[in-house]
Design a protein around this nucleic acid. Structure first.
Lengths: 208, 208
DNA sequence: TTCAACCTACCTACTAGTAAGTAAGAGGTC
DNA sequence: GACCTCTTACTTACTAGTAGGTAGGTTGAA
C-alpha cells in the first residue's frame, strides 16, 4: 500500500544535502540524536566532517532540517490516508502501518526517539517534536470522531482521549518491540488497542 | 500510598556508591545514558571522576548496577501491590501510580529511556532491559487473568495482549507527556486504557 | 600497618566546529 | 573564444573542549 519509505528517507534526491539527511535520519532513529556524530555520517558518505558543516552549519541545524523534512513527509502520509475513502478502523490500521514500516527496519519513530532525548535537544528541535505529537493527536481525534459518527468506533470514549491512547500505545509498543526484536509484538499490541475502540455494534463477536 | 521514591532512589543509604547511583539514575532518567558523563556525576557530588571509577570501574558497570538496583526496587513495588487485597482494576491503578511518581519528577522510566538507546547499550545492560519488560508483562498478565476470574476485567481480551497494551501505553504516554510537561496527559491516557479493559458488567455506565 | 576511599595528574580518542584554501563551473563582458 | 568574477562544493589542517579511563600517591580510621 502506498509508496514505501514514508517515514524514512530512502534516497530520492541524489544531492549531497539529502544524502546527509538520509544518513543522519537513519542514525538518529537507531542510535539517537546524541549518539551519532558528524564523523559517523562523514564516514558513511565518504566525505569530510567539514563538508557536512558546509551543508548544515551546526548539529542543531541538521536536527532541525531532519525534523522539518520528516514532518512534511509524515503530513503527506496522513493526507494519503485521508484521500482514500475508508472507514475509521481501516484508517487507523493504515496509521499503524506507518509505524510498522519503520519498525521493520529496526528503527524507532524519529519523534519518539527525540522525545526520550527531549531535555538535551536544542530548543527549536523541541518545539517541532511537540508539534508532531500535537498534529498526530489532532488527526487521530478527527478520525475517531468520524468513526463515532459512522458507527464504527465505540461512542462511549472521548475522541480526544482515544486519540491520545493510540499515539501513546503505538509509540510505547515501538519502543518496547525494538529491544525484543519482535515486530509481531508491535502488531499484536496495536491490534489490541484498536480493537478495544471498535464499536461492539459494528463487530459480530469480540472473541479473538 | 506506600513509601515514596519507588522508582527513583532518594538517598536512604549515605554511602558514596549509593549516592553515585542516585545521581546517575536521575541523570539517565532525564537525559539518557549516553547524554550524561562521569564528570556530571562528579561535579554534583563534589568528587573527582577518579573517585567514581573507584566505585564503578566502567560506565557499563555503573549502568548495570543502576539497572540491578532499579529492578530490585521495582520488583518489591509490585510485591507491595500484590500484598494488599484489592481487585484487578485497583492494582492496575496502583501500577499506573508507579509511573506517575516518576513523571511528576519530570523523569522518564529508566528502562523506557534505555529502550530508546537500546542499540548503543553494553550487552549486559540490554539483557536486563529486556528482562524488565518481560517481568512487567508477566506480572500484568497475572493481574488481568485474576481480574477476568473475579469478573472485573473484560473476558474477551487475551490477558497477554492486554498486559502488553498496558505496558506499551504507559511507556508511550510517559514518553509523550514529558515533552508536553503535562502530567495530566499521562493520567488521562492511562485512565482511558485501563477503562477500556474494565468489564462492562462490573461498571454501571461507561460514559466519562 | 593495612586498607578503603579517595585525589592529582595525566592519557587517548573523540566531540562539534572553524580557518583557509581550491577545483570546477556558471555568467557576463570585451 | 578568451578573460574575469563569483559561486558551489568541497578539502586539509586545525581548535577548544569533553569523553571514558588510568597510574600512582595521600589520608584517615581500624
Amino acid at each position: 500500500m502506498g509508496p514505501d519509505a514514508i517515514f524514512s528517507g530512502l534516497p530520492g534526491d541524489r544531492d549531497t544535502a539529502s544524502l546527509v539527511l538520509d544518513a543522519a535520519e537513519r542514525l538518529v532513529q537507531t542510535r539517537g540524536f546524541n549518539s551519532f556524530s558528524y564523523a559517523d555520517v562523514a564516514r558513511e558518505l565518504e566525505l569530510t566532517k567539514a563538508a557536512l558543516h558546509y551543508h548544515f552549519a551546526t548539529k542543531a541545524d541538521l536536527g532541525e532540517a531532519l525534523l522539518e523534512r520528516f514532518a512534511a513527509r509524515f503530513a503527506s502520509a496522513l493526507d494519503r490516508i485521508d484521500a482514500k475513502p475508508a472507514r475509521a478502523p481501516d484508517k487507523l490500521a493504515a496509521y499503524a502501518d506507518l509505524y510498522l514500516d519503520v519498525l521493520r527496519r529496526d528503527q524507532m519513530c524519529l519523534c519518539g526517539m527525540l522525545a526520550a532525548e527531549y531535555r538535551t535537544l536544542p530548543e527549536r528541535m523541541q518545539v517541532i517534536v511537540v508539534r508532531f505529537f500535537n498534529d498526530n493527536e489532532a488527526w487521530l481525534t478527527g478520525v475517531v470522531e468520524r468513526g463515532q459518527t459512522e458507527g464504527t468506533i465505540d461512542g462511549a470514549v472521548s475522541p480526544h482521549d482515544a486519540a491520545r491512547s493510540i499515539v501513546a500505545a503505538f509509540e510505547g509498543a515501538m519502543l518496547i518491540a525494538r529491544p525484543f526484536g519482535d515486530v509481531a509484538w508491535f502488531q499484536a499490541t496495536a491490534a489490541t488497542v484498536l480493537n478495544g475502540l471498535v464499536s461492539a455494534a459494528s463487530v459480530p463477536a469480540r472473541g479473538q
